[in-house]
């Protein structure tokens, strides 16, 4: 009988300890999810942050649907009002640029104008605007290409279309699901493939050179931006941070957090990203925020999380 009582108490103790352990574990974990092409930078931030904050475990949640339960969601386009819930805010953490890239063996190079494509020509090449009131009013580009883009609701598609004054459903060609990196896989397989992609995927972040098999689509750029098409990743980033180029979309990305579930770990991490974390942006192929914007993010963060300081 005694034995059976002791077994019971032991079991109860184990259960209680387990529950405590689970709760403790939950407090020290931070989950992040969202736009995948930013993951290389986020992972870098996580590993660097872990070096100075060993008590917190930050996890990148890959699976779809996780966005609903993650502590921070990454967004890389200007959200429509209904995309944000009432208690949600965005803290921007950097910028990304989309460059037009193609298969390096694309025959299109022989047909393009010497000075490169201007905005109008790029627009016509990538977008199709149908006038529903008038049949056969689809404008076709004079160049032959297969356009690859992410699904209409993906951040890069919305950012690209928005930059050219379109909606993402007006992007021509084929769609690719999953991750922007697959756009490059598609282009490498298709000799007339053409896509816009972010610098972190287009360039090898170690060698800082354009990845094998790819070439940038010649664009009609001003003299001081010309080297952008031939330079290494650092040149490209430097040029884009200095100039606004009408054929190269640059957009902010950031974290959506919920004020309803405020946690000190979240604000600490974001504060670190906006300060120490910024130095890794360039390394992973992302642009820094303008100084004013960065300062504004820090201020907003302090205001929102004042009570948690």
């Amino acid at each position: 009988m005694k034995r059976s009582i002791s077994i019971k108490y032991t079991t109860l103790l184990v259960v209680l300890l387990s529950l405590f352990a689970i709760k403790t574990n939950a407090q020290e974990t931070l989950t992040i999810s969202g736009t995948k092409f930013t993951y290389p930078l986020i992972e870098k931030w996580i590993s660097e942050y872990a070096k100075v904050h060993s008590g917190l475990k930050i996890t990148l949640v890959q699976k779809s649907g996780a966005a609903k339960v993650a502590d921070l969601n990454i967004i890389a386009h200007q959200p429509a009002k209904e995309e944000l819930k009432e208690n949600q805010e965005i803290i921007y953490a950097g910028r990304f640029a989309l460059l037009p890239a193609t298969n390096q063996h694309n025959a299109i190079f022989g047909t393009l104008p010497k000075k490169g494509l201007n905005k109008k020509e790029v627009d016509k090449l990538f977008f199709e605007v149908v006038n529903y009131d008038d049949e056969a009013k689809v404008e076709n580009s004079k160049f032959t290409a297969t356009i690859y883009s992410r699904e209409n609701q993906a951040c890069s598609s919305i950012a690209l279309a928005g930059y050219f004054g379109h909606v993402s459903s007006e992007i021509r060609g084929k769609k690719v699901t999953g991750d922007d990196i697959y756009l490059l896989t598609a282009v490498k397989k298709d000799s007339i493939g053409l896509t816009y992609n972010n610098l972190g995927y287009l360039y090898d972040v170690n060698s800082r050179k354009l990845k094998d098999g790819l070439a940038l689509l010649p664009l009609d750029l001003k003299r001081d931006a010309k080297e952008l098409l031939t330079g290494d990743l650092d040149n490209v980033i430097a040029t884009l941070e200095k100039n606004k180029i009408e054929t190269i979309p640059v957009e902010k990305f950031g974290f959506i957090y919920s004020q309803q579930n405020e946690r000190k770990e979240v604000s600490d991490f974001l504060r670190w990203v906006l300060s120490d974390g910024q130095k890794f942006n360039h390394e992973e192929g992302f642009l820094n925020l303008d100084k004013e914007v960065l300062a504004e993010q820090a201020n907003r963060l302090n205001e929102k999380f004042l009570t948690l300081k």
């Binding site: 649907g65 049949e135 769609k175 699901t177």
Partner: peptide, 27 residues
């Protein structure tokens, strides 16, 4: 709706948004 060609590289669930093609009767 406008026809779509979609390359799938990962097995995770996908959401496909179809845009209307109001011009279908014209031909």
């Amino acid at each position: 709706y406008k026809y779509q060609e979609i390359d799938v590289y990962e097995a995770e669930p996908i959401t496909i948004f179809l845009a209307e093609d109001q011009n279908r009767l014209s031909s």
